[in-house]
Nucleic acid binder design. Structure first.
Lengths: 327, 327
DNA sequence: TGTATTTACGTTAGTGCTTACATAATTGTT
DNA sequence: AACAATTATGTAAGCACTAACGTAAATACA
């Protein structure tokens, strides 16, 4: 399943899917018990059952739908003989919905089914799973009511677009971010090799001590990307461990990190700068080319990584040979 | 809001409502940022962005929708110029969906908006609220996949309908149920008065010791209802503290409890049996009438309860006088 | 009292999805 | 190789809901 990996971004879709799932499940139970009702009728029927005759808009307000929806639902319930429309004597505009005798008895007969539904859900989700789900739903409903989410989003957007992207050098407090940001793409596309784990876990020893450098990109206070420059041998540098948080891509962080690393390479008057990567990482490769890396015909001899199938060398000025050079 | 009070029973409706809420919120943000996309497109677009060209059914499988839905969505995306349909060279049946250049750049530009959406949700729900919601959703999705909820419901239903309702006398282990079952309806319709709290909290002292009795209804191992017979003065009994778990109503538990209490009244050769209630409790009043209680013209003198506005006396044989007795 | 505004409801058109069906291409079987 | 079965997709019809509109009744206000 792909959606859960999107977490907050696909909340709407995930909730919808769960909703459909429950509706369908309950409908199937109703059907196979011969209940003669549909799951979507439940809120209205139950409300009328508990509260007696009620106007269309009061029902709509209570169950959180529009009056049209309730009105149309009422049509069906009337057709099914479960509900009756009565004119309000005091107020001629209002139309009171009441359960008919048939509706009353149908709902009473539904009792055991509701219990079964409830216990079935509990059995399937587990008692704890169900309570946490219900608690989370209630909290979300309340939060959305109290703190309009649109305003919050727009405020965040304004803050983000006005914030400036900073590139900062390594500091011990940022060590965990170095691991996190790299683990993200490694886990998604490949797997974390032993050599990764070692290097990412102790960057001071494996990157800084041998004469390398690490940069971080920070936006509005959040560390969103990183990039390392390793000194392989005197004057020979490797660009590596470049990672930008998935949710912050496309904002230029990668490009800025790359620029910072290359600037550092020049500042140290390095002789050679190369990188190893994988052909699957299309957007990264495109970016490398754009800043001056040139694809080499074969993998670098003695690469440390299983996943390396691309070898590029920094040769600003040179362009990658065009495909149809002869023509 | 009424729905949350229904808890598990209206899960579908509540999830749907939340889903709509999120869709609408994100759409509004997209619109006011001039993003030119709709929130419902997100799963497809994002998937294509991450995975490149993909067949219709693979997309559908990944985002958990039908191929038709994806196909129709693709029509719109093509209209919007974000996606292109390509024929698969190997397999003529397949239709590959790919982002166009415009689609690529639109999605890249969307980065900051997604971040804002994500942070906005977090700000609105709170960091903890969001994590618990996501965790609960993930757990639910997984549970539904592993343990089909329909089967669980049907199994519970079978167990319930074959189970027999038992009426059992008071036992110390059941004390807490006496409080719980009565608190439920008291809190919903009235409020718990001091006299309630005292009596419900120590039934042995206030009900049994003065010569009363308490019964419980049990179904499939669950205690679902209770009812008390209080001795007010020698030979004079009060029927009181009758409560059936909301989710187990309409299964005859109330009627059985009532019958047990009346039988006990006869067994003790009581002289008078009365009850106090409230006119709002329609179903209960109807039941009392059916078993032989007769509505009295005025409230009983010196009632202990604020909520009492109905006074009934057990007079089997007598019926309530008909409304139009004269005609 | 007469007129504008508000309220309650129903109706219509449209949206996003589903199910059911149709069609074309591929694969399996003999 | 010929035919049936399967697979991938698109299309049509239907459902649940919404938004927008129209109408009737009630209310506010001068």
């Amino acid at each position: 399943m792909y959606l859960p990996s999107l977490a907050q971004l696909a909340l709407g879709s995930r909730l919808k899917s769960l909703s459909d799932h429950f509706y369908a499940a309950v409908d199937e139970v109703y059907r196979s018990c011969g209940a003669g009702v549909e799951s979507r009728w439940f809120p209205v029927l139950r409300f009328l059952w508990e509260h007696g005759e009620t106007t269309v808009s009061d029902v709509a307000l209570a169950i959180g739908q529009t009056h049209s929806a309730v009105s149309q639902l009422a049509d069906k319930l009337v057709d099914a003989g479960l509900v009756q429309r009565k004119k309000d004597a005091q107020d001629g505009r209002r139309s009171l919905l009441v359960l008919t005798e048939k509706g009353q008895s149908a709902l009473s007969a539904l009792g055991p089914i509701w219990v079964a539904v409830r216990r079935g859900i509990m059995r399937s989700l587990g008692e704890e799973g169900l309570t946490t789900l219900l608690a989370a739903l209630a909290a979300t409903e309340q939060a959305l009511e109290e703190r309009p989410v649109v305003d919050a989003m727009l405020a965040e957007h304004a803050a983000l677009t006005s914030a400036e992207l900073e590139i900062i050098p390594y500091a011990p407090a940022l060590k965990d971010h170095f691991y996190r940001l790299n683990a993200q793409w490694l886990e998604r596309h490949f797997r974390i090799e032993d050599i990764d784990r070692e290097l990412l876990g102790d960057p001071e020893r494996y990157v800084l001590a041998p004469g390398g450098a690490i940069f971080f990109a920070r936006l509005a206070g959040e560390v969103i990307g990183t990039c390392a420059l390793l000194q392989e041998s005197p004057g020979v540098y490797e660009l590596s461990k470049m990672g930008v948080d998935e949710t912050f891509r496309g904002m230029g962080a990668g490009r800025s990190l790359l620029a910072a690393a290359i600037a550092e390479f020049h500042r140290r008057e390095g002789r050679e700068l190369f990188l190893e990567s994988n052909s699957r990482l299309k957007t990264a490769l495109r970016m490398y080319e754009q800043v001056g890396f040139v694809l080499q015909p074969s993998v670098r001899a003695g690469s440390h990584y299983e996943r390396a199938d691309v070898y590029m060398v920094y040769q600003p000025g040179k362009r990658r040979p065009a495909r149809a050079a002869r023509g």
